[in-house]
Design a protein around this nucleic acid. Structure first.
Lengths: 332, 332
DNA sequence: CACCGCTGTGACATCGATTACCTCGTCCGG
DNA sequence: CCGGACGAGGTAATCGATGTCACAGCGGTG
């Protein structure tokens, strides 16, 4: 009963021409006479023809699809990034395949490999790994987000992690803090290393001797940020302020801070989150907009897909301190 | 320099056999002699052969990909749902294409059409539209989430919206509230209608006359939930409690409630969110786990893709009140 | 007038994998 | 000893669109 979807061949037959000419019309080739063009266009409408993207991809050796690889799709930061990328892709009729690495270099390999096998047209990657040799001959444009690829000349959209962390610490110091704790990601990601470096920069510049007891390296997915916070706050000589180096650490740490009724402590979060301005005290943040990062990355990728070939660049998304209260509390 | 990726033909040649036999080995056909099988397998390893998914899809008329269509990828609820689906898909080597409708029925049509054109193997859909006639002859299994398709016999994973809303209102009434406001989504989505119905059920069962001034229908994406909350709280005869019918409304409403220093008001949110248990007072919620919904939907879809054919079913994900403070405040 | 170049067109190969259909032995029962 | 079932494997068509290349017709040119 149900008619199978029309093929190019059917269109060609209806228009009394060859598939090649029909293909020309559809792809906007100029060298087709007006009358033939009209017949084909009519046939397309009559039959409701739509080219099969699969066949097209096979022939062209490339899929009208981009891949986005992030740590974890459910992470609010990446969810917003992806949302923005998807928005831009949809406008261009491009599909978005997403994949998450769970912060495992091995999985990253696997999903990237799969995406490349599928011949995606381009990739946006929040890489967890620090070796990308196998991407050096990538057949498609790559844009890194959140963390640049250090061993690869590829576009990246990042924030000034080191400078941002330093800004956060200096902000706390301006409000009188001298003992400031750091809670951040595992140091096997570059982002975490840079932010920790920024923290140390600021302390050193202020002539404060670093205290390793105040540096906690955690795995936010495991929920151990809260444990780290509790440990810090129970030290014999506890910090008067905490710097949380990313959103998920903040989300893990703050419930503990509140449970222990230590809302008197100074707090700055690298990255915003829902309700940050509503809890008491409201949380001072280093703001970096995931939507902006997504947009910049997608723009870059689409411009390359459109054939433009600007020099490889690492784009810095802007960063600023948004004081809301928790970062302006002085030490006891 | 760079060798092109090996094709099945290369494998066949290396194993001194035909593509057909090589294909049989790869697809696990039993009727291949042990020695031939071994040769082919060796060749596959030697050449690092990986079948081209595009070609395979074309031939099979189906892509090893599932589509997930939601309101908005950046929405925390859907982000978690997608995260869980992606997790399950990756385990099966299936890719996930995401698309968002922005709550526009027209866009929903477009993205679904695109996905169907791509011949996805299956679809998971949070539908915004209420006509799905064009999906009736869908070539692939469908699973609806969050909202069932009323005009289509298809699987769905939903929560008991009406009952859940009723639970929320009854909870507030048990703590003495009689004037309870409702803030929820536009009523052109079924979910919103059910939740509002549940709200009305509860009031009616308690013999409370409904007051339409207390019902606000908003568009959370536009940020007008906060405006609605302010309007409600400034009424001559204001409510003593607010029921927020979904997470995004809660995220929009609560900053306003706090800004107006009206944290004395009763509050229940349909749907959890980050920091809900950390703000003061902590927010009482109707809990429905997005991860669970994602998992159930994905399980259903994969079971159909595996050829199982259970009767079409609407699965109810469980729901419960999680009291945290804001829902247990009595009226002034 | 022969030749050149340009335009519009179509037959056919191609992308890489799957499959309908066929061939060739071999082994078995009758 | 023969027919036929069966196992193993090969040939070529197929999926649907696009690239290659050749060709016909036409106008201009030396």
């Amino acid at each position: 009963m149900k008619a199978p979807r029309p093929r190019l061949r059917d269109v060609a037959e209806a228009a009394q021409t060859s598939t090649k000419t029909a293909s020309r019309v559809i792809n906007g080739d100029v060298r087709v006479s007006a009358s033939t063009r009209a017949r084909v266009e009519q046939a397309v409408v009559d039959l409701g023809y739509r080219p099969d993207p699969l066949a097209r991809s096979l022939r062209l050796g490339q899929d009208e699809t981009i891949g986005v690889v992030v740590d974890e799709v459910g992470d609010p930061f990446f969810a917003s990034v992806i949302g923005e990328i998807e928005r831009m892709a949809l406008d261009r009729g491009v599909s978005v395949i997403i994949a998450s690495t769970r912060r495992l270099a091995e999985r990253e390999r696997i999903v990237l490999d799969g995406l490349l096998q599928r011949r995606v047209a381009g990739l946006i990657i929040a890489s967890i790994s620090d070796t990308h040799a196998y991407l050096r001959t990538s057949p498609c444009p790559l844009v890194f987000i959140d963390r640049a690829a250090e061993d690869l000349a590829a576009d990246a959209v990042v924030v000034d992690d080191r400078g941002g962390a330093r800004m956060a610490i200096e902000h706390l110091m301006r409000h009188g803090h001298r003992r400031i704790a750091y809670i951040g990601d595992r140091l096997d990601t570059a982002t975490a290393r840079y932010r920790l470096a920024g923290y140390r920069d600021a302390l050193e510049a202020a002539g404060i001797a670093p205290d390793e007891d105040l540096v906690a390296e955690v795995e936010p997915a495991k929920g151990d940020a809260g444990v780290a916070a509790e440990t810090l706050l129970r030290l014999a000589n506890p910090p008067t302020a905490i710097f949380s180096a990313n959103t998920r650490c903040s989300l893990g740490t703050l419930p503990t801070v509140h449970r222990l009724r230590r809302t008197d402590i100074g707090f700055v979060s690298f990255g915003d989150f829902a309700m940050a301005d509503t809890i008491t005290p409201a949380i001072t943040i280093i703001e970096h907009s995931p939507e902006l990062i997504g947009r910049l990355a997608a723009e870059r990728l689409f411009s390359r897909l459109a054939g433009e070939d600007p020099p490889v660049e690492t784009i810095l998304a802007p960063l600023r301190v948004v004081p809301r209260g928790s970062g302006e509390l002085g030490p006891a």
